[in-house]
Design a protein around this nucleic acid. Structure first.
Length: 254
DNA sequence: ATGGCTTTATGCTAAAGA
C-alpha cells in the first residue's frame, strides 16, 4: 500500500501536476494540503480512478484525501476549539489504516496570536493522537506540520532561528508526539543531511538545495513494522510553475 | 534585505505563506 502527502499550494493551479503525478506513481492514497479555495475538482479525480473527501474554505488552507479504495470519513475538524473554522484536518479509515491528514498552522509572526493558535492546535493534535493510540493499531498522522524537527532538517539553521517552525516550544510539542509512540517515518532508515520537502520560491533556493523538511509521516508502532520505505520525491519541484513543497511517499507491506 | 516569489480575492493592493 502506497500513501503520499503533498502540499500543492492551490489545487486549481497545480491540477495538471497532480494528475500527471498520480498517473506516474499510482499511489493508493494521496493526502493534499493548501487547496487554497472553496472549489475541489472531485469529478476530475473520479474520472482517473480516485474517490475523494475534502475540507475547503475560501482563499486559504484546505485539505483533501484521494484514494483508489473506499474512504470512511471519521472526522473533518480537530476537536478542542469550537471557534476554529479553518480547514486543516481530515481523519479517515482506508484499507484498515487510520489516515489523518493535517495542515498544521504556520504560526508566524511568533509575537502574534498566530503563534498562540499554532501551539494550541499542536496541543489539541496531541490529545487527538493520544486517543487514537488507544483506539487503533494502524495509525498515521501526516501532512504539512510546519515544523523543522531538528537543525539537520534545515539548510541554514541560523536563518530559521526564532521562526515558528523551530522555536523550542514548537519542537517540544513535536517531540511529545514521539513520547506517545509515534515515529517520524522518514528518519527510520535515513539519517542523511540535506533532505528537504520545501524550498522557497525566491533566491533560487531549489537549485541551491536551500530547503527545509517540514512535511512528515508520523506512524504508530505497527505501521513502523509494516513500513518498506519513506522517500521524498523532489522531481515535481523542478517543473514549470511548481508548488514550493514536494510529495513524500510511504510504502507499507501488503 | 524589510519576503527578493506565488496565490487568492464581491481584486488592481493586501494578506498569507515559511
Amino acid at each position: 500500500m502506497k500513501i503520499a502527502i503533498w502540499n500543492v499550494n492551490s489545487i486549481k493551479t497545480r491540477l495538471e501536476h497532480v494528475k500527471n503525478w498520480l498517473a506516474t506513481h499510482q499511489v493508493d492514497v494521496l493526502m493534499l494540503q493548501e487547496l487554497k479555495g472553496e472549489v475541489f475538482p472531485s469529478e476530475i479525480f473520479q474520472e482517473i480512478g480516485y474517490k475523494s473527501v475534502y475540507a475547503a474554505q475560501k482563499a486559504y488552507n484546505g485539505v483533501a484525501i484521494l484514494s483508489k479504495h473506499d474512504i470512511d470519513l471519521r472526522c473533518d475538524k480537530l476537536p478542542g476549539d469550537d471557534g476554529d473554522d479553518q480547514a486543516r484536518f481530515l481523519d479517515c479509515m482506508i484499507g484498515g489504516v487510520r489516515c489523518v491528514n493535517i495542515y498544521l498552522p504556520n504560526g508566524n509572526p511568533v509575537d502574534s496570536d498566530k503563534y498562540t493558535y499554532k501551539l494550541s492546535w499542536m496541543r489539541r493534535l496531541y490529545d487527538y493522537m493520544k486517543e487514537l493510540r488507544g483506539a487503533e493499531s494502524d495509525v498515521l498522522i501526516a501532512g504539512d506540520y510546519n515544523v523543522i524537527p531538528e537543525d539537520r532538517d534545515c539548510h541554514d539553521p541560523k536563518a530559521w532561528e526564532g521562526d515558528a517552525a523551530t522555536l523550542p516550544q514548537t519542537r517540544a510539542l513535536y517531540r511529545s508526539y514521539g513520547f506517545l509512540g509515534y515515529t517520524d517515518a522518514f528518519r527510520v532508515n535515513n539519517h542523511a543531511d540535506a533532505q528537504y520537502s520545501f524550498w522557497d520560491y525566491q533566491r533560487g533556493a531549489y537549485q541551491k538545495n536551500h530547503g527545509i523538511r517540514i512535511d512528515h509521516f508520523l506512524l504508530s508502532p505497527n505501521l513502523v513494522d509494516r513500513m518498506e520505505s519513506c522517500v521524498i520525491d523532489t522531481a515535481p519541484r523542478g517543473l514549470e510553475k511548481p508548488s514550493d513543497h514536494v510529495p513524500v511517499i510511504l510504502t507499507l507491506e501488503s
